[in-house]
Each structure stands twice: as C-alpha cells, then as structure tokens.
Amino acid sequence: MDELLSPFEGIGKYILKIIDELGSLIIYLWESVLSIFRYSINFGNLIDQMIFIGMDSFYVIGLTGLFTGMVLSLQAYYAAKIVGVTYMIGPTVALSMTRELGPVLTALMITARCGSSMASEIGTMKVTEQIDALEVMAVDPYYYLSIPRILAAMIMLPIMTILCSLIGIIGGYIVYAYVLGLNHMVYIEKIYQYMKLSDIYNGLLKAVFFGIIIATISTFKGFETTGGSKGVGRFTTQAVVLSSIYILFADYILTSILF
C-alpha cells in the first residue's frame, strides 16, 4: 500500500514545496516594498542598475528582436502566400512583436543576462558574509540590494521591450521589402490599419510584471544561497529556471486578462 501511495506522496511534497516557495517569494517582495517606505531610495544605486539592465543589454535585445522579426516575416510569408494575403505580413509581425514576442523574449533574455548576474552577485555576497557586513553596518540588505534592482527592472523592461519590438518590426520590414521583394508601403500601411495603441501598452504592462518577476526571484534566490561556490551556481540556475517559468506562466495569465 505504501508503495502505491509513494508517487502521490512525492507529488504532494513537490506541490507543498512550490506553495512554500511562492509564499516566501510574496513575503520577500512585500518586505522589499516596505523597505521603500522605510528608507529613501538610493538613486545612484538605482541608476547603476538601470544602466546594467538597460543600456548594457541593448545589443543582445536588439539582435534578438531583429532576427525574430526577420524570421517571423519569412515564416508568415510562406503561410500568407498560400491564401493570398501577403499584405497581412506587416500586421502579423507587428502584433506578434508588440503583444507577445517583444515582452516575452526581452524578459527571457534579461533573465539570462541580468537575472543570473543578480542571483550570483548577491549569492556570493551571502556566502562571503558581505550581507552580514551590511546588516552589521545597520544597512537593510533588502533596501540596499533588492529595491534598486526591482525598481530598475520595472522601469527598464518596458523600455527594452519597446526597443525589441521596434527592431523586430524593422527586421520584418527588411525581409518583406528587400528579401521577398514585396511593396514596402503595404507593410507600413497595414500595420497602421490593424494595430491599436492598446496592443502596445498592454504589451508594456506585461513587461512591467516580467521585470518584477525577474528581479524579485533573482534577488530572492541570491539571499537564499548557501553552500559556498557550488551553492552560488545552484541557486543561480534555480533563479534563471524559476524566473523563466514564472514569466511564461504570467504571460498566459496576463494575456487572458489584458487582450
């Protein structure tokens, strides 16, 4: 009987672990938000993080957007040609980029580039007693390390999403006009015709949520780190995997609500 129940016991334990971790994450986010009201914001630190998440990620986000838009244009062409609606390639690329691919791909790239860095930096500080040193010096580590990162991610993710989407649309245009040799004015005109402002700002709203998810999970995992350098590696991996899963999960929920 015990053997029959053991798989269910395992699943149950796993679900409890997920709920426990989600609860800890929410408490951590709440603690971090409270720190904003306890202390004044360190703008120097905030700007450093905005540069790190934003400007330093420009090339990788730009390339991601460019190639995604180009591929999208190419793939859409094969389908659109069959039913004779190649004039819809522009709106297809633009709507896909602004509503879905721009926010999600930006978030996943920022997770890989910045989330991992946040988790490993804070994790290393944890295992080398630098977090203890902050506490001993009466500096709240949540205020000093989490808040600038969470705020910077909230601000920079939408900006990077705009860039990603815009470059993606340009990439789609390059393929449409110069590779496929179609009328470039149709591409632009149809985008204006089919795209609404709400498509853009709902996509940006998603990006704000993704920013909160990335920075909260990554810094949380950093603070949780134990077990020396091996632990730093393990918790950094957890931060990236967990952030990516939560982004995809949140994407579905937000898409259902917003669009």
């Binding site: 930096e121 290393t124 500080m125 080398t128 007693e129 630098q130 203890d132 040193a133 001993v136």
Partner: peptide, 13 residues
C-alpha cells in the same frame, strides 16, 4: 557597533 569579520567581508565590487 563595528565588526571585523574573519575573512574581512569586504565588498569586492
């Protein structure tokens, strides 16, 4: 308080 840590705990960045 001031505290001197075993390995310094200096901020390495």
């Amino acid at each position: 308080f001031g505290m001197v840590f075993q390995d310094g705990a200096l901020f390495d960045s």
